[in-house]
C-alpha cells in the first residue's frame, strides 16, 4: 500500500521563527474572529432568552399581581352585581366551567381513550397511521372551528345557546389530546406484562382491560387532566355555543357561563369593578393551569430527565 505522507518538514526555516507551543498559537486573526463570533452568539442568544422570558414573566406577574388584589370568598360564591356595583363574584362561571368540563369529558375521554387503545394495541399498518396523522392534525385546527361546528349542529336547530353545545365543542378539542397521551402511555406498558397475562389464558380483551389499562392508569389520568386544563381555558368555541350568563344555571339546554367567557366579557366591560373581577378570574385560571402542569410534571417525573 502506498500512502502519501503529509508534507515533509522543510529545513528552510529561519531559526527564531518562534518555537511556539502549538497550544499557544491562538492569537491569529482567524481564531480571534472565531472567538468573537462565538461570544457574539452567546451574548445575543442570552439577550434573546432574557428578553423573551422577561416579557412573558412580566405579563404573568402583572396579571397575577393585579388579580390577587380582587380575590375574596365572595368572588367564588356570589353572582356578578348588575352595572358594576361593588361586591359580587363570578360563582356562576365556576359552576358553568365545571359542568362544561364534565360534559366535554363525557364525550372526549371515551372517544379519545378508545381511539388511543386502538392505536396502541392494534394500530399497525397504513389505516392506523392515517388515523394517527388525522388526530394530530385535529389537534392543530383552530378551536373556533369547533365552536362553529357546534353552533351549526346544535345551537341553530335548538334556537338557543346551550351548555350542551359548549360541551360538544370542548369535547372535540379534548379528543386528540386524550388519544395521543393514552396511546403513548399504553405503549410504555411492558410487553412481559401482556405476555404473562395472555400466557395465563386471559383473553386479549381481558388483558387490556384488567392488566394493561390499570398499569397505565396514572399516565392516562395525567393525559385527561392535561386535556381538562386545556379546555378549561378555551374561550373562542364557547362564545357561540355556551354564550355565557350572569345567573346560576345547571340546565344544559340553556346558555351557560364559563370562567374564560366571563373573563373575556368583563375585560371589555366599561365598569372598573368588572375589569377588576376579570383580573381576579385570570388569576384563578392561571393558578389552575399552573397546578395542573405541576401535577403532570410530578406524576411523569418530568423534572428529573432534563
Amino acid at each position: 500500500m502506498s500512502v502519501p505522507m503529509p508534507t515533509s518538514p522543510s529545513s528552510t526555516l529561519q531559526s527564531g521563527e518562534s518555537h511556539l507551543h502549538p497550544f499557544l498559537t491562538t492569537r491569529s486573526s482567524l481564531n480571534l474572529r472565531r472567538r468573537l463570533v462565538n461570544a457574539l452568539v452567546v451574548l445575543s442568544t442570552t439577550l434573546a432568552a432574557l428578553f423573551a422570558a422577561g416579557l412573558l414573566i412580566y405579563l404573568l406577574y402583572y396579571v397575577l399581581s393585579q388579580g390577587l388584589r380582587y380575590i375574596d370568598l365572595d368572588f367564588f360564591t356570589q353572582l356578578p352585581t348588575p352595572n358594576g356595583e361593588p361586591g359580587g363574584g363570578m360563582g356562576e362561571a365556576f359552576q358553568g366551567s365545571l359542568i362544561l368540563i364534565a360534559l366535554a369529558s363525557l364525550m372526549g375521554v371515551p372517544l379519545g381513550l378508545f381511539t388511543g387503545i386502538y392505536l396502541a394495541e392494534f394500530g399497525r399498518g397504513p389505516f392506523a397511521q392515517g388515523v394517527r396523522f388525522l388526530v394530530d392534525v385535529l389537534n392543530g385546527i383552530p378551536t373556533i372551528i369547533f365552536g362553529l361546528l357546534a353552533w351549526v349542529l346544535i345551537v341553530i336547530p335548538m334556537q338557543t345557546f346551550s351548555g350542551l353545545a359548549g360541551g360538544f365543542a370542548l369535547g372535540m378539542i379534548m379528543i386528540p389530546i386524550v388519544t395521543r397521551t393514552s396511546e403513548d402511555v399504553l405503549r410504555l406498558v411492558p410487553r412481559e406484562l401482556r405476555e404473562a397475562s395472555l400466557a395465563l389464558g386471559a383473553t386479549e380483551a381481558r388483558t387490556i382491560l384488567q392488566v394493561v389499562l390499570p398499569a397505565a392508569r396514572n399516565g392516562i389520568i395525567t393525559g385527561v387532566v392535561l386535556a381538562m386544563a386545556r379546555v378549561a381555558g378555551e374561550t373562542a368555541p364557547l362564545l357561540m355555543t355556551a354564550f355565557g350568563t350572569t345567573f346560576w344555571n345547571t340546565d344544559v339546554t340553556q346558555p351557560m357561563d364559563a370562567l374564560p367567557l366571563r373573563i373575556f366579557q368583563f375585560t371589555l366591560s366599561p365598569y372598573q369593578q368588572q375589569v377588576n373581577q376579570a383580573y381576579a378570574g385570570a388569576f384563578v385560571l392561571i393558578v389552575l393551569i399552573l397546578l395542573a402542569s405541576l401535577a403532570v410534571r410530578l406524576a411523569t417525573g418530568g423534572f428529573k430527565q432534563r
Binding site: 422570558a53 381555558g233 375585560t267 376579570a278 392561571i286 393551569i289 410534571r297
Partner: peptide, 27 residues
C-alpha cells in the same frame, strides 16, 4: 436555571389566549 426556564416556557405555552387578550386590551 435551565430547568426552571424550561418549565416556565412550557407553562407559558399552556396559558389560555384570553389571558393574553386581557393583557393586550387592558395594558
Amino acid at each position: 436555571l435551565r430547568l426552571i426556564l424550561a418549565f416556565l416556557i412550557d407553562l407559558l405555552a399552556a396559558i389560555p389566549s384570553v389571558i393574553y387578550g386581557l393583557w393586550g386590551f387592558l395594558v
